[in-house]
Design a protein around this nucleic acid. Structure first.
Lengths: 158, 158
DNA sequence: TAGTCAAAAGTCAAAGATGGTCAGAGGGTG
DNA sequence: CACCCTCTGACCATCTTTGACTTTTGACTA
């Protein structure tokens, strides 16, 4: 193996495979010490090798008793629908209630969300909840809809 | 367990669970001694883990015969839980990720939402999704959390 | 009754313990 | 040589732990 990043990646995947649950919790400093590298190298490995697209979720906590948790997830089979919806969201300069509804309806049709959840999110993204200037409203809707797509990538994994 | 605060939190919750009443009375100094920490550590645990939105009430008395009483709030009516959470949301000038998480966890505990929905909304209200100034973020979170409460009020018949 | 004192608990800011970010240097490969 | 990964370290953000100082309360005393 030529570089330390690959070595660390293999190590983490090995540990992950051997763990009963499909999640492991590590201490950044420990791993860095084990492989004699700087702590931020671990972040590099995680950012380049344990991404959502590759089927990993990473959470962490700082401070005393801090940790990094890596979880294996199953990606949803309908990635293409999510991509196309993300494109739609990116392309529209203004995101009004109608567009939000269309996106949510589509997600329900494709069985990527439950009706009730869509309903809920629709309310959160309504004009009433986002009582702001039009541009700001669009901004928030864009951010949140894109976030929704990102989460759906691995939820109900197919 | 990673840090002493978590250990103390677990201990107190255990004692609370085992007590007949939903309240316990402790002596700060005793707990501090039991876990070999400074007394103010207990305040830290209480302030970060036994908050109102998590469903706890804390009272105390100083001086001779002093104590700290921790009470688990038991609300049977959905309305009451929602009102109490709305109050919390109104009273907090700053709504950070931690508070959002606490509220959502509570709603799941009280079986007013599914875990997955809470997860989803947590992401929508994350710092990452609401990539704004602190005050604006608080504003949006407040609006959307209050909207959430309103929706939950009539969902599943209320 | 008022004052004093000791025994709690509270507050707060500094120090400690982790993890995160980012820009620039380093190195291998087409 | 150019480009794309990797690697590094300085600086940042967040959570926890500690301890000095403050406030409150009740008992005892004058």
């Amino acid at each position: 193996m030529r570089n330390i990043s690959d070595v660390i990646e293999q190590y983490l995947k090995q540990v992950l495979k051997e763990s009963q649950a499909n999640a492991i919790e590590i201490k950044r400093q420990d791993i860095a010490q084990r492989f004699e590298c700087v702590p931020s190298q671990i972040n590099y490995v995680i950012n380049t090798r344990f991404t959502v697209e590759k089927g990993y979720l990473v959470e962490s906590k700082r401070g005393g008793g801090g940790y990094i948790r890596i979880r294996r997830v199953v990606l949803h089979e309908k990635q293409d629908i999510l991509s196309s919806l993300m494109e739609v969201i990116h392309e529209h300069p203004r995101l009004n209630e109608q567009l939000v509804e269309n996106v949510l309806v589509r997600l329900v049709e494709e069985q990527m969300m439950h009706e009730q959840e869509a309903q809920l999110i629709y309310h959160l993204l309504s004009d009433e909840a986002l009582n702001l200037q039009v541009d700001d409203r669009s901004f928030i809707r864009r951010q949140q809809l894109l976030t929704l797509m990102k989460v759906l990538r691995y939820r109900n994994g197919g």
